[in-house]
C-alpha cells in the first residue's frame, strides 16, 4: 500500500501533522517559559520561549512565604495530594468491590442495582452543584476534607469499568479457589484482584486524574479560603483575579504548570492505560 502514496501526499500529511502538533504542544512550552519570565518580559514578548531576563520571582512567590505576591502554594499542593490520594485509593478498592459483586455474585436485586449504576452515569455533573452543596450543608460537613473526599469515594463509571472487566475474565480460576474452601472476600482479595491488574491501573489513573483535576465539586463544598483550597481551586481564584493585583502572568502560569505536571508525568508513563481508559469510557454500556 505504502508504495502507492506519492511523495507529495506524504509531505503534505507530515506538514499538516507537524502544524497541528505545534498548535497542540506550544501552549505547554509557553507555560514553562513564562513561569521563568519577569512580568514585563511576559507582557512584551508573549511568543518567545526564552526568558529574558531569567527570573525566579514567580517560583519564589509560590514557595517563599516572605516573597512579594505570595500565594499559599504549599497548602494547595498538600490539599491536592491528600484529597487525590485518598479518593484514588478508595475508588480503586470500592469500585472493584462493587464491580465484582455486580459481575459475579448472584444476589436478589442485582439487576436493579446495575440499572441504577448505568442510569447514574447519565446524570450530568454540572447539574449537581446546588444539590451537593445542600447535602453537605445538611450533614454539617461544609468546608471540611470529609466533604471534599466522601462524595468522590466511589464513582459509577469506575464500578462500570470494573464490572465490564470481570465479565470478560473466565470464572474457572475463582471457582477452583472457592472449591478449595476460600471464602468470597478471600477469593476476591487474593485471587481476583491480582488478576485484575491492568484494569486496576486504568482505574487508578482515571481516578487520580479525575480527582486531581476536579474543580466544581471542591468549589461548591468549600468556602474558597486557603485552608481547603486545592491547586485547581486555588489556581482558579488566582487566575480569575481574586488574589492580588496586576496580571502576574508568570505566577499564574507557574501555578498552572504545577497543576499540569503530575497528570502529565502519569500520562507519559502510563499512556496506553490512558488510551484504554478513553476508549472504555466510550464503550460503556
Amino acid at each position: 500500500m505504502s508504495t502507492r502514496v506519492s511523495p507529495i501526499t506524504r509531505i503534505c500529511v507530515y506538514l499538516a501533522l507537524v502544524a497541528f502538533a505545534v498548535l497542540f504542544i506550544y501552549p505547554f512550552f509557553v507555560q514553562i517559559a513564562t513561569s521563568f519570565k519577569t512580568d514585563a518580559d511576559a507582557t512584551n514578548n508573549p511568543l518567545s520561549l526564552i526568558p529574558n531576563p531569567f527570573s525566579m520571582a514567580a517560583w519564589r512567590s509560590m514557595f517563599d512565604p516572605s516573597a512579594a505576591a505570595h500565594v499559599p502554594m504549599t497548602t494547595w499542593l498538600f490539599n491536592s495530594v491528600l484529597v487525590a490520594s485518598v479518593v484514588t485509593v478508595s475508588r480503586v478498592f470500592f469500585d472493584s468491590l462493587a464491580g465484582y459483586a455486580l459481575s459475579r455474585l448472584r444476589f436478589p436485586g442485582r439487576g436493579l442495582v446495575f440499572a441504577l449504576v448505568v442510569g447514574i452515569m447519565a446524570v450530568p455533573g454540572v447539574a449537581l452543584l446546588i444539590p451537593k452543596f445542600l447535602m453537605v450543608n445538611y450533614l454539617g460537613i461544609y468546608n471540611t476534607y470529609a466533604a471534599m473526599i466522601m462524595p468522590l469515594m466511589i464513582d459509577a463509571a469506575g464500578v462500570f469499568i470494573m464490572k465490564q472487566f470481570f465479565d470478560s475474565v473466565p470464572v474457572s480460576i475463582e471457582e477452583a479457589a472457592r472449591m478449595d474452601g476460600a471464602g468470597i472476600f478471600r477469593t476476591f482479595w487474593s485471587v481476583v484482584l491480582p488478576m485484575a491488574r491492568p484494569a486496576l491501573i486504568t482505574l487508578t489513573i482515571l481516578s487520580f486524574q479525575g480527582s486531581w483535576n476536579e474543580f466544581t465539586h471542591y468549589l461548591v463544598v468549600t468556602d474558597g479560603t486557603t485552608g481547603h483550597q486545592t491547586l485547581v481551586t486555588g489556581l482558579a481564584s488566582l487566575a480569575s483575579g481574586q488574589l492580588g493585583a496586576g496580571t502576574q502572568y508568570p505566577l499564574k502560569l507557574g501555578a498552572a504548570l504545577l497543576t499540569t505536571i503530575p497528570v502529565a508525568v502519569l500520562f507519559f508513563i502510563f499512556q496506553r492505560y490512558f488510551v484504554r481508559g478513553a476508549n472504555e469510557g466510550a464503550e460503556k454500556g
Binding site: P27, F28, V30, Q31, Q209, W212, N213, F215, V232, L235, A236, L238, A239, K252, L253, A255, A256, L257, T259, T260, V263, A264, F267, F274
Partner: peptide, 10 residues
Amino acid sequence: VTSAVAISTV
C-alpha cells in the same frame, strides 16, 4: 488529560 482550569489560565 490536563486540568481545564490550568489550560484556561494559559
